[in-house]
Design a protein around this nucleic acid. Structure first.
Lengths: 153, 153
DNA sequence: GTGCTTGCAAAGCGTTTGCAACGGA
DNA sequence: TCCGTTGCAAACGCTTTGCAAGCAC
């Protein structure tokens, strides 16, 4: 047995157990979609997940992708990130962290910050707000794009 | 002359100056929309702004509202807040703060937190990300709704 | 076998766009 | 006058929904 901490447990058996535990059927489409989303760090869109799932399930529909993402959202295993970029991104990191959103390449990168959980609990107690989720976004230009623009310009 | 700090300067002359300074024409529709959005603390939607502007300008169109909101966004006087609630909210507070989003009544309340600007600058220097904007959201249930549910349930 | 899930198509809905008429500067 | 802006309608694109067939349990 391994003692290594798996940061994002997305093995099929864990996924299947979680689905059944909540009364959802573990269909092969669902498992494939869950595996993709839960193991991704790219903050994928519904379309990009659809594209990837089709490799394994060529007949899968976009509607099934959306429905499965809703299920994962209800299970609190992912979070929706509607952005001012038309398409919603999905984040399998549901703990307090920063999303650095590059408005040039549209990339989204997680940034850890230990103080954010304190910010959440402080605000919750101050305002008596029952917090069930949170998102912290930074908008701007990532280093890679800044360098590229600098060279090009 | 007044020495009082106006928290949200939204007087017509300031709005007109700002528009002209950036090369935009100061039409009466635009001024009315700007005044409404910039003075609101309710995080209004395009529809709610449209409804309010129609009182002064019964013939105004929703398209004009959207176009003006884009102008204000470009001028960095407001911020778009796409939420997982179908409609985008608009926030005239562009400084780092928390938006407490009640998933029950759909209300959005600003919460001040002095440490957020430090969080932003720390993340920016750590990741070399050029920050041009930010948003920090809490999702859950506000105190008012929690009490109401408690009594009802 | 039962009832949830799938896949297809169509609908829904917030937002954007094209364009002729209008009106600030 | 000139060119940006308005208002209308249509288009757009992401997301959701209805429904018959399929499949998990």
């Amino acid at each position: 047995m391994s003692l290594t901490l798996i940061e994002r447990p997305a093995s099929d058996s864990v996924i299947i157990d979680n689905l059944r535990k909540r009364g959802y059927k573990a269909t092969s489409q669902r498992i494939a979609i869950c595996r993709l989303v839960l193991s991704s760090r790219e903050h994928p869109t519904a379309q990009s997940i659809y594209r990837d799932v089709k490799r394994l399930h060529p007949t899968v529909s976009l509607a099934t992708v959306y429905k499965t993402l809703q299920v994962l959202n209800e299970m609190r295993l992912i979070q929706q990130l509607p952005l001012p970029l038309s398409e919603t991104r999905f984040d399998s990191n549901v703990d307090p962290h920063l999303n650095a959103v590059c408005l040039q390449c549209r990339g989204v990168t997680d940034v850890k910050d230990q103080t954010l959980s304190k910010v959440v609990s402080r605000a919750a107690s101050k305002t008596k707000f029952k917090v069930t989720g949170q998102r912290f976004d930074l908008y701007g230009v990532c280093d890679k794009c800044a360098r590229r623009s600098g060279i090009t310009a």
